[in-house]
C-alpha cells in the first residue's frame, strides 16, 4: 500500500492526464451530438498537450529563456533550464488543433444548414442509412 501511494504521488500528473484524455475519448465515441464529439476531441488534444509539456519539466528548472552573456560563455547548467523541445512541439500541436477545430466547425455549419440538425441518428435517418 505504501509503495502504491508513492507511485501515485510521483506520477500524479500522468494519472490526471489519463483521466482528462478518457473524458475526451468518451465524449468522442459515446455522445451522439457532433458538437459534443468535437468538444471531446478538443479535451483529448488538451490532455496530450499537457502530457508533453509535463514531460519536459524539471524540478527547480527555470524558463527556457537564457541570459545571453552567460549562455555565450557556456555557463548554463542544463538541469536548471526546462526542456524547450516539448514546448516547441506543442506550439505546433496548438496551431493544428485550432485549424482542425475551425474546419470542423465550418463543416458542422454546413451540415446544420443541409439537414437542420446536428444529432448523428437524425442525420443518418435523413440520409436513409440508419
Amino acid at each position: 500500500m505504501e509503495s502504491m501511494l508513492g507511485v501515485v504521488v510521483a506520477k500524479y500528473n500522468y494519472w490526471l492526464y489519463v483521466v482528462l484524455m478518457m473524458i475526451g475519448f468518451y465524449a468522442m465515441i459515446g455522445k451522439r451530438n457532433l458538437v459534443k464529439k468535437l468538444l471531446g476531441m478538443n479535451i483529448f488534444q488538451t490532455a496530450i498537450i499537457l502530457f508533453f509539456v509535463s514531460m519536459g519539466a524539471k524540478r527547480g528548472g527555470g524558463i527556457p529563456i537564457l541570459d545571453k552573456e552567460a549562455a555565450l560563455a557556456g555557463a548554463v547548467k542544463v538541469a536548471e533550464v526546462v526542456n524547450p523541445l516539448p514546448h516547441v512541439l506543442m506550439l505546433t500541436a496548438i496551431v493544428v488543433s485550432v485549424s482542425v477545430t475551425g474546419v470542423a466547425l465550418a463543416v458542422l455549419q454546413r451540415i446544420y444548414k443541409e439537414y437542420g440538425t446536428l444529432e448523428e441518428d437524425e442525420i443518418l435517418d435523413k440520409i436513409g442509412r440508419s
Binding site: 496551431v95 475551425g102 466547425l105 465550418a106 455549419q109 444548414k113
Partner: peptide
C-alpha cells in the same frame, strides 16, 4: 498569415458565409 486566417475564420463562422 495567422492574423489574416484568424480573421477570415471568424468572418465565415459568424456570418455562415
Amino acid at each position: 498569415g495567422v492574423m489574416c486566417i484568424m480573421l477570415s475564420l471568424y468572418w465565415d463562422m459568424a456570418s455562415g458565409g
